Each structure stands twice: as C-alpha cells, then as structure tokens.
Amino acid sequence: MNIFGIGLPEMALIFVVALLIFGPKKLPEIGRSLGKALRSFQEASNEFQKEIKREAEQMETSVKMQAQLEPEAKKTTQPSPETETEKASES
C-alpha cells in the first residue's frame, strides 16, 4: 500500500505520533476534517478538469467552423473574370 509515496511503516509511525500529540479523543475529529478537506479538494480538481476539457472542445469546434467558413469567404472576395474584362474594356 503506497499513498502519496508513503508506505505502511511510515503511515503507522505518523499515526502513532499523531496519537501521542493529539490524544485518542481528538484524533477522529482531525481525521474527519482531513477527509472533508481532501474530498473538497478532489471535487474542485474534478471540476477544474471538466472546465478545461469543455474549453478545449469549444476551441476545437470554433477552429473547425472557421476552417469551413474561410474557403467560402475566399471564393466571394475574388473578382470574377467577367468583372475584369469589363474593367479592361472601359479603360
């Protein structure tokens, strides 16, 4: 069992030290508050990841739409051959 790079012997040592410092009555309260903090951090991390994915998908969609619109815009901005011959005959 390896959590955060800490093995079982290290976790046992940390538990014993915490038990000596805080006592058996305060230890469950500290564990609960630590669990709540980790859970809220995990929820915030998941929400951040979802937001990043959503933004990346929006950017991909807008790039695809822009790529589809650009060829049409180039077609409409080029002068037609008829217009060029009319200009040449006028001058």
Results as ranks from 00 to 15, higher is better:
Glu82Cys: 02
Met1Phe: 09
Met65Ile: 10
Ser89Gly: 09
Lys50Gly: 07
Ala56Leu: 11
Glu72Tyr: 09
Phe48Asn: 14
Lys75Ala: 06
Glu90Met: 12
Ser45Leu: 14
Ala73Asp: 02
Glu90Leu: 15
Ala12His: 09
Gln66Ile: 09
Glu51Trp: 05
Phe22Asp: 00
Ala44Tyr: 07
Phe15Tyr: 10
Lys50Trp: 03
Glu86Phe: 08
Gly23His: 02
Ala56Lys: 11
Leu27Thr: 01
Glu47Cys: 07
Leu13Ala: 11
Gln58Cys: 03
Ala67Lys: 07
Leu34Tyr: 06
Leu27Arg: 00
Phe48Met: 15
Gln66Pro: 01
Glu47Ile: 10
Glu47Trp: 05
Lys75Arg: 14
Ile21Gln: 02
Glu29Ser: 07
Glu57Gly: 03
Met65Tyr: 10
Glu90Asn: 11
Lys50Cys: 06
Val16Phe: 06
Ser40Gln: 14
Ala37Glu: 14
Phe22Gly: 00
Phe15His: 15
Ser62Ala: 13
Ser33Cys: 08
Glu55Arg: 15
Met11Cys: 05
Ala44Arg: 13
Phe41Pro: 00
Ser62Val: 10
Asn46Ile: 07
Ala73Leu: 07
Glu55Thr: 14
Ala12Phe: 06
Gln68Asn: 14
Glu47Tyr: 06
Val17Cys: 02
Leu19Glu: 04
Ile30Val: 03
Gly31Pro: 01
Leu27Trp: 01
Ala73Asn: 04
Pro71Asp: 02
Arg54Glu: 07
Ser89Lys: 12
Met59Arg: 13
Ile14Cys: 03
Ile14Val: 11
Lys64Pro: 01
Val63Leu: 15
Ser91Glu: 15
Phe4Arg: 08
Ala44Leu: 10
Ser45Met: 12
Gln68Leu: 14
Lys74Tyr: 04
Arg32Gly: 04
Arg54Pro: 02
Ala73Thr: 05
Val16Asn: 09
Glu86Val: 11
Leu20Pro: 00
Gly35Asn: 08
Gly35Thr: 06
Val16Pro: 00
Glu43Gln: 12
Lys75Ile: 03
Val17Met: 06
Leu27Gly: 00
Ala12Glu: 10
Ala18Asp: 04
Lys74His: 04
Ile14Pro: 01
Ala37Leu: 15
Ala44Pro: 02
Glu84Val: 12
Phe48Gly: 13
Glu70Val: 09
Met1His: 10
Pro71Leu: 02
Thr83Phe: 12
Ile6Trp: 03
